[in-house]
Design a protein around this nucleic acid. Structure first.
Lengths: 245, 245
DNA sequence: TGTGGTCAAGTGGCCCAGCCACCGGACCAT
DNA sequence: ATGGTCCGGTGGCTGGGCCACTTGACCACA
């Protein structure tokens, strides 16, 4: 099952981007070891050679350090952070912005999407269904879906905008490394994405916009709930160091 | 002849260093194609995978450009060092994206703007009137107006998005350094901005959105005219996606 | 007790052989 | 000339394999 993401981007680049994204999200905090090359290859569904190439590009960027025979480590305290001094917008602002902008993007995509782009969207939904148990895969698939949607508008600038929105997200998640994710939540995301994709396929802009609004409103709601919960149980300082499989 | 791999240094690094050396020595002048990966592998006495890794590291450094199916080329005009390798969207795409997004932003600003933000907008228009003769000032004032409008939504993420849009614009203008600006055009921009600011002050979202749409449609039109003009004086017209040979 | 040695599992380093998609130029037909 | 087809060359990527190194558990032996 080749990954076959967006389109004509070198594979190692895609992998590097996703890895960088995961690191930025706090999934792999600084200093931690990330999965072995073989594991990464398996989980990304690509060959080890491609993963190695991605690692090398990350190494070049100073994001990651390779120790032979031991593993690959996220570089401690690097300049990867923004030189942006101020706090920046909060998660709810971002979600509100996404609702406004991506709603229009969805509508435009419904107007302009070409058949192969619609297929790509549907494939993304399928992949999300398949990877419902894999947090990292889900995460990157989510991002891909929204990028694919932007691409479906046929407007490269919109693509860049959506990319920028996700970079904002990455920064946020780095700041408040909080991810309350349940499988239940993931399945609703699948349904939301499917609804959007279907509306695009039906070339129905209004429905696409509405579906996107519903999607992001739901995410906002869930996020609010999560914040409330953690705020309530703040007294217990125990960090359940959530580790993979 | 094969290089000595006794060093504990990673192989791809050694290869990359040697290739960089050859390029620096003028063995492979800028713009030339260097030997195929298979040949390089053979001549270095290493595997193609290692050569590929080296190439990737050189690519990261911007020393080299890879064109699939064609070959690996020494980067022509360095110094640019753009991390974004692809060509990126064109000016019309950007304008279309801005129309879509900034239209919504204007509408939201009309809803949310606080009095001091409205004042800031009006002041920006005033400044534009004053600096009508100063190209550079006009330019930065234009940008400020749109940023102020985004700020007036009260949503920091939207601000960042608009900032991103103007960064896209900056890149574009770098590529096609063509700015046909007349004072007549500047005055229309003033009127457009004033109309937007007034709509925001009147707290009328629909009018604000419409005013922004009119503004950017006009800019698009002017830009199209400019392109046609310059295209007439040159032989080729279509995409300015030039490749200097 | 603790010191040093052995060993196996796990990891990155590197290679091989092969298939694919893509590009570009030669070649041919219209 | 124009447009289509074909084919060789090129990078992209795979999957399997072997090696050197690191680590930690385990086991003597003092």
């Amino acid at each position: 099952m080749p990954l076959q993401l967006v389109e004509p981007k070198r594979l190692y680049r895609q992998i590097a981007d996703q890895l960088a994204q995961l690191i930025a999200n706090g999934e792999f905090p600084a200093g931690t070891r990330l999965p072995a090359e073989r594991e990464l290859a398996a989980s990304f569904g690509v060959s080890r050679a491609s993963v190695r190439e991605a690692i090398i590009s990350l190494e070049m960027s100073g994001l990651v350090e390779v120790r032979v025979g031991t593993g690959i480590f996220v570089t401690q305290e690097e300049a990867g952070a923004r030189p942006r001094g101020d706090a920046g917008p909060g998660p709810f602002e971002l979600l509100a912005a996404r609702k406004l902008l991506e709603g229009e993007i969805a509508a435009l995509a419904a107007r302009n999407a070409r058949p192969h782009q619609v297929e790509a969207l549907q494939r993304s939904v399928k992949r999300l269904e398949r990877d419902v148990d894999d947090f990292a895969a889900r995460e990157s698939e989510d991002r891909d879906f929204h990028l694919l949607l932007a691409k479906a508008t046929g407007n490269g600038s919109l693509e860049l905008v959506v990319e920028g929105l996700w970079n904002q997200r990455a920064e946020l998640w780095g700041r408040l490394q909080r991810h309350f994710h349940t499988n239940d939540l993931a399945e609703r995301t699948i349904r939301d994405h499917a609804a959007i994709a279907d509306a695009v396929e039906a070339k129905n802009p209004e429905r696409a916009r509405a579906a996107m609004h519903r999607h992001l409103s739901r995410v906002t709601r869930e996020f609010q709930r999560g914040v409330d919960q953690t705020a309530a149980s703040k007294s217990t300082g125990g960090k359940p160091n959530h580790r993979r499989t």
